[in-house]
Simulated scan of single mutants.
Amino acid sequence: MTGTTPTSTSAATVATEIVLPGVVEPNGLEVRTRSLPAPAASQVVLRMDATGVSFAEQQMRRGKYYDQPPFPFVPGYDVVGTVTATGPGVDPALTGRRFAAVTKTGSWASHLLIDAADLVPVPDGVAADAAETVVVNGITAWQMLHRLAAVRPGGTIVVLGANGGVGSTLVQLARHAGITVIGTASARHHDAVRALGATPVDYRDPDMYARIRRLAPQGVDAVFDHVGGPGLTQSWQLLRRGGTLVSYGTAATKDETGNSRLPVLKVFARLLLWNYLPNGKSAHFFNIWAGRRRLETFRRRLSEDLTQVLRLLADGVLTPQIAARIPLADAAAALELAESRTVAGKVVIVPGE
Rank of each mutant, 00 (worst) to 15 (best):
S8L: 13
S10G: 14
T16S: 13
I18M: 06
I18P: 09
L20G: 12
V23C: 11
R32W: 09
A38L: 13
S42P: 08
V44I: 13
L46T: 07
M48A: 06
G52H: 06
F55L: 00
A56H: 08
M60Q: 02
R62E: 04
K64D: 05
F71Y: 00
V80S: 03
P88A: 09
G89P: 01
D91M: 01
L94S: 03
G96H: 02
F99W: 08
V102S: 03
G106I: 03
S107D: 02
A117H: 12
A117Q: 13
G125A: 09
V126Q: 05
A130T: 10
V136N: 12
T140W: 03
A141H: 01
A141P: 04
Q143N: 11
H146V: 10
V159N: 09
L160T: 12
L170R: 06
L170S: 06
G178L: 04
I182Q: 00
T184Q: 06
S186T: 08
D191P: 01
A192S: 11
L196N: 04
Y203N: 00
R204I: 02
P206V: 06
D207L: 04
Q218V: 08
A222G: 05
H226M: 14
V227T: 13
P230N: 12
T233R: 14
S235C: 14
Q237C: 10
L238V: 07
L239A: 03
A251L: 15
A252Q: 06
A252D: 10
V264P: 07
A269K: 14
L272Y: 11
L272C: 05
L273E: 14
L277Y: 09
P278I: 07
N287K: 12
T297A: 15
T297I: 12
F298D: 13
R301K: 15
D305N: 15
Q308R: 15
R311C: 09
A314V: 05
G316K: 09
L318H: 05
P320W: 01
Q321D: 09
A323M: 01
A324R: 14
I326M: 08
L328R: 03
A332R: 03
S340C: 05
A344I: 10
I349V: 15
V350D: 00
P351L: 10
